[in-house]
């Protein structure tokens, strides 16, 4: 119990991921909260990778964690820009009203 192994980190990461996933649905009207949940999921994935990297003594995991963080930043920045533009156009960013893709 007291010695921390790989499994502990994996469990924590799985929990963070699941929290992020259910956050997308719980906050399904608030688009910013969705973005935050996605960030949460990305962090949990990089935690997962780093944990594997350390316990397997292999740097590749950390390298890819770096890449994930870069991708997360790029994605979030573009997302924020889209929200702002959307807000300027529609005066609200409620996800309920966003159904332009409706078939």
């Amino acid at each position: 119990m007291l010695s921390i192994g790989l499994n502990h980190y994996l469990l924590l990461s799985a929990f963070l991921f699941a929290t992020g996933a259910c956050g997308v649905f719980i906050n399904h009207k608030n688009i910013t909260a969705m973005l935050l949940s996605v960030e949460l999921m990305l962090v949990s994935v990089s935690l997962n990778l780093v944990a594997f990297s350390c316990f397997h003594n292999d740097l590749t995991g950390q390298v890819f964690a770096v890449f994930i963080l870069v991708a997360a930043v790029a994605e979030a920045v573009v997302g924020i820009a889209v929200f702002i533009i959307y807000f300027l156009n529609h005066k609200s960013i409620e996800a309920e009203n966003m159904s332009g893709l409706k078939g």
């Binding site: 996933a21 997308v24 649905f25 399904h28 688009i31 969705m34 996800a95 309920e96 966003m98 159904s99 332009g100 893709l101 409706k102 078939g103």
Partner: peptide, 18 residues
């Protein structure tokens, strides 16, 4: 019928992914 699958709401697509 397939058209109905496309609700246009982000979280429905996210649900499909999850």
């Amino acid at each position: 019928n397939i058209r109905k699958l496309h609700s246009g709401f982000v979280y429905h697509y996210a649900l499909a992914m999850i």
